Every structure is written in C-alpha cells, then in structure tokens.
Deep mutational scan, measured.
Amino acid sequence: SEEELIEKAEKLRKEFEFIWNGIRFIIRENADEIRRFEELLKE
C-alpha cells in the first residue's frame, strides 16, 4: 500500500541521514590528516 511505501521511504531517509552524518563526522575529524595527505600527493 501507499502508506507502507511512505513508511519504508521515511525509514530509508533516516538511515541515510544517519550514515551521512557519520561520514561527515569522520571527514570533519580527519580533515587535517586528509589535507596533509593531499599535500603529500602534490609533491
């Protein structure tokens, strides 16, 4: 039914948001290391 689809979509959206926030947190935490690594690659 349509309601089930909406519920599934909402659940997926929440899971995606949770994963995305996790990725963003990891990137933020490691931003300095990532930048340093990029500098090494440029040399």
Score class of each variant (00 low, 15 high):
residue 13 R to T: 05
residue 28 R to Y: 12
residue 8 K to F: 10
residue 20 W to S: 00
residue 16 F to M: 07
residue 40 L to M: 06
residue 15 E to W: 15
residue 31 A to I: 13
residue 18 F to H: 03
residue 4 E to R: 08
residue 43 E to H: 08
residue 24 R to N: 08
residue 22 G to A: 15
residue 17 E to Q: 05
residue 28 R to W: 14
residue 8 K to E: 05
residue 24 R to T: 09
residue 4 E to H: 05
residue 27 I to G: 02
residue 39 E to F: 05
residue 39 E to R: 03
residue 36 R to K: 08
residue 23 I to Q: 01
residue 31 A to T: 07
residue 33 E to R: 11
residue 19 I to R: 00
residue 23 I to C: 13
residue 16 F to V: 06
residue 13 R to W: 14
residue 6 I to M: 07
residue 6 I to W: 10
residue 27 I to K: 01
residue 6 I to V: 03
residue 36 R to F: 12
residue 1 S to A: 09
residue 17 E to T: 02
residue 3 E to P: 03
residue 38 E to C: 15
residue 20 W to K: 00
residue 29 E to P: 02
residue 41 L to W: 12
residue 40 L to A: 02
residue 32 D to C: 15
residue 24 R to C: 15
residue 26 I to Y: 01
residue 12 L to W: 12
residue 10 E to L: 01
residue 9 A to R: 04
residue 34 I to P: 01
residue 20 W to C: 14
residue 14 K to W: 14
residue 30 N to K: 06
residue 35 R to M: 07
residue 25 F to Q: 14
residue 10 E to R: 08
residue 21 N to Q: 10
residue 1 S to Y: 10
residue 14 K to Q: 10
residue 4 E to T: 08
residue 5 L to R: 04
residue 23 I to W: 02
residue 32 D to H: 08
residue 31 A to P: 04
residue 26 I to M: 01
residue 33 E to I: 15
residue 1 S to L: 07
residue 42 K to S: 09
residue 7 E to K: 04
residue 36 R to P: 01
residue 32 D to E: 05
residue 2 E to G: 11
residue 42 K to A: 11
residue 20 W to M: 07
residue 26 I to D: 01
residue 43 E to D: 09
residue 6 I to D: 06
residue 14 K to R: 07
residue 11 K to M: 04
residue 43 E to K: 07
residue 3 E to S: 12
residue 32 D to W: 03
residue 7 E to I: 11
residue 33 E to N: 11
residue 30 N to W: 15
residue 21 N to T: 07
residue 19 I to H: 05
residue 18 F to P: 00
residue 29 E to F: 14
residue 1 S to W: 13
residue 3 E to D: 09
residue 31 A to N: 06
residue 39 E to Q: 05
residue 17 E to L: 06
residue 2 E to W: 14
residue 2 E to Y: 11
residue 23 I to T: 00
residue 5 L to K: 04
residue 33 E to L: 15
residue 5 L to D: 05
residue 8 K to S: 03
residue 19 I to M: 04
residue 40 L to N: 02
residue 40 L to H: 04
residue 30 N to L: 15
residue 9 A to H: 08
residue 21 N to M: 12
residue 38 E to F: 14
residue 26 I to C: 14
residue 19 I to P: 00
residue 16 F to K: 00
residue 20 W to T: 00
residue 10 E to G: 08
residue 1 S to C: 14
residue 32 D to M: 05
residue 38 E to W: 11
residue 37 F to R: 00
residue 29 E to Q: 08
residue 25 F to E: 14
residue 43 E to S: 06
residue 37 F to Y: 03
residue 23 I to F: 01
residue 12 L to Q: 06
residue 14 K to V: 12
residue 28 R to A: 13
residue 38 E to G: 11
residue 40 L to P: 01
residue 26 I to L: 07
residue 41 L to M: 07
residue 7 E to G: 06
residue 10 E to T: 02
residue 18 F to T: 01
residue 29 E to T: 12
residue 9 A to L: 14
residue 36 R to V: 03
residue 12 L to V: 10
residue 22 G to Q: 13
